[in-house]
Simulated assay, not measured.
Amino acid sequence: MSTYKSLTDHELFVLMQDGDKYAFEEIYERFNGLLYIYACKMVPDREDARDIIQEIFVYLWSNPNIQIKSQLSAYLYTAVRYKIFDWLDKNKSKTNYLQSLEDFSQKGDYVTDNYIREKEFASIIEKEVNLLPPKMRVIFEMSRQQHLTQREIAEILHLSDKTVKKQMSNALKVLRLKLTSFLLLAIILFIR
């Protein structure tokens, strides 16, 4: 269905929620490969990665009342990340749990304080990334979140390597400028 290819992710999502299987198929085509690559970077077994992605799409199709507060891509990547965390949890050995508990008991408050600061800073970065122009944001996210090379991004998005490199450079300049002022403010407040 070539008409579906021209629709935005949001438009497809709305149609899919109304039961349009072609809209769902287009969403699947757009995101299946990218989500699979993303999952493979954290899950060593390719079949497990494929199963995780399939579970996400089954859930998406079978729950037409899902409310998405951001963009569909962000929702899907977050869903995959949480599904991977569940998978990792189920596959962790008791030793890892005991080691984690021991580390926390030794570093407790310090680790928690740093964790909170990291989460706050990550939230600020995420907000700034979401403010980037759409094409630039997609390229930046594919590079930084999915850990794809410029060549892989260019192939997936059907762009030249040069275009991808320029978009990444522009994104980093914008973020550097915005985040530098935030860091300076944070340092000033910390010194007081």
Rank of each mutant, 00 (worst) to 15 (best):
N114F: 13
L185H: 13
S169C: 10
T95P: 11
F140V: 05
V43M: 03
S181R: 05
T95Y: 15
G33D: 06
Y22E: 06
V58N: 06
Q54F: 14
E102N: 15
M1C: 09
A186F: 15
I156F: 10
F182P: 05
T149V: 00
Y77G: 00
P133E: 01
L98Q: 15
Y97E: 12
E141I: 06
S73F: 12
M142E: 01
E47H: 14
S93D: 15
L185M: 12
S70V: 00
S143K: 06
T95C: 15
I187E: 12
I52Y: 11
P64W: 13
L88N: 09
D48I: 01
G19C: 05
G33E: 07
W61R: 03
R176L: 10
D18V: 04
I156K: 08
I139P: 04
M142Q: 02
G108N: 09
L60W: 04
R176G: 10
R81L: 10
Y75S: 04
D89T: 06
Y82A: 04
K94T: 14
F121Q: 07
F140K: 01
A122Y: 12
S181E: 09
D18H: 08
Y59S: 04
Y28V: 01
D45K: 09
D20H: 03
L12N: 04
E102T: 15
N63E: 08
L177S: 11
R176W: 07
K94Y: 15
S143R: 09
E25F: 12
L185C: 13
N170Q: 07
I56F: 12
E120Y: 14
S105Q: 15
Y59L: 06
N114Q: 12
D113P: 01
E25R: 08
K21N: 06
K166L: 14
R117Q: 12
I188Q: 14
T112Q: 13
R46L: 11
D20N: 05
R50Q: 09
E141V: 08
T95D: 15
L131I: 04
K135T: 05
L15S: 07
M168S: 03
S2E: 13
Y97D: 12
Y59M: 07
L185P: 01
K166H: 11
L15E: 05
I53D: 03
K107N: 14
F31P: 05
K21E: 09
Y97F: 15
S6C: 07
N130E: 02
S169M: 11
L7I: 00
V138S: 03
F121P: 02
K69F: 12
V58E: 09
K107F: 15
Y4L: 02
Y36H: 00
K90I: 04
I191M: 12
I56S: 05
L159R: 03
S160R: 07
D18C: 02
A186T: 10
V138A: 09
K162D: 11
S181M: 07
V129L: 00
A23R: 05
V80L: 08
A39F: 01
I66D: 08
Q99T: 13
I125R: 04
E118H: 13
F182D: 01
I187P: 04
